[in-house]
Simulated scan of single mutants.
Amino acid sequence: MSAAHYAKIWDDYWSDTTDEPGQVFWDSRPEVGVLDDLHRFGAHLDPHLPLVDIGCGHGTQARALAGRFAHVVGVDVSEAGLAIARAGEPRPGLEFARLDLLDAAAAQALHARLGDANLYVRAVLHQLDDAARVAAVAGLAQLLGARGRALVVELSPAAEAYFEYLFAEFAGPPPGLRRVLRHGIQPAALQRGDLTRLFALAGLAPVAQGKGVIHTTLNLPGGQVALVPTDIFVFGRASEG
């Protein structure tokens, strides 16, 4: 799919989003989202580098990052999502900018402005097709430069079975996820080894890894919060080792 296609479906999604709680399926509170990820893996990121929140959407996680790094840039392909993010509470050192990660020249221009940067990449790659994933990871490598590292949270292979369970519980797509599918966004869990192979193509290798979950806004019939299984990696230049 083209970059223009991804921009359109995400603009459509965010344009259809209001302040009503629970609309955004993956809208974790920062303490069980980015702050928990940083608690576990943040020691692998150089605190002196800026941090770019890739696919920041409406900016929830980027605002939490701004409390941990001096300069944070939330980027997204969707102008509609960025409009929501910019309308939120301002934070020192936080800015939002449009970035088409599939555009190599755009990634190069952002790197030229920021220098080497750390990246937070939460549940972005799984909704891209195979060719777009390769281009996206090349863009991530451009932004990292020589010294940056990428903290990547992605749906694990176990997520596929978990979504089947959710569909069975709700006799179809559950609320929140139904909105995602209606706008043509097609999530697909990456299979074992996909992430490391993708990043290896861009000269990046795992520095650390672990398991986690995405706390969704969906409550199950028994009252529990739906938790989507994830794999978590920190990637850096393969030459580091």
Rank of each mutant, 00 (worst) to 15 (best):
A200G: 13
A138S: 14
A189L: 02
G223A: 00
R149T: 11
Q191W: 01
A205D: 12
R63G: 01
M1R: 15
A80G: 06
Q209R: 14
G203A: 05
V152F: 11
A66R: 05
R149E: 04
V52M: 05
A97H: 15
P21T: 08
G88Y: 04
W10A: 05
L144E: 09
V225R: 14
V225P: 03
T17R: 13
V73T: 15
A158P: 00
A3Q: 11
L218R: 12
L204V: 07
T17D: 10
E20S: 14
L99W: 04
A109R: 14
L110P: 08
R40S: 14
Q224N: 08
G212T: 05
A83W: 00
D129A: 04
A83T: 02
V34C: 13
L114C: 04
Y162P: 03
W10Q: 01
P21K: 09
V52G: 03
L38R: 11
G67F: 07
L38E: 13
V121K: 04
T17N: 11
G176I: 00
Q108V: 08
W14G: 01
E95M: 09
L227D: 03
G74C: 07
G81Y: 05
R29N: 14
L201S: 09
D37I: 06
V234Y: 06
L204I: 10
G212W: 07
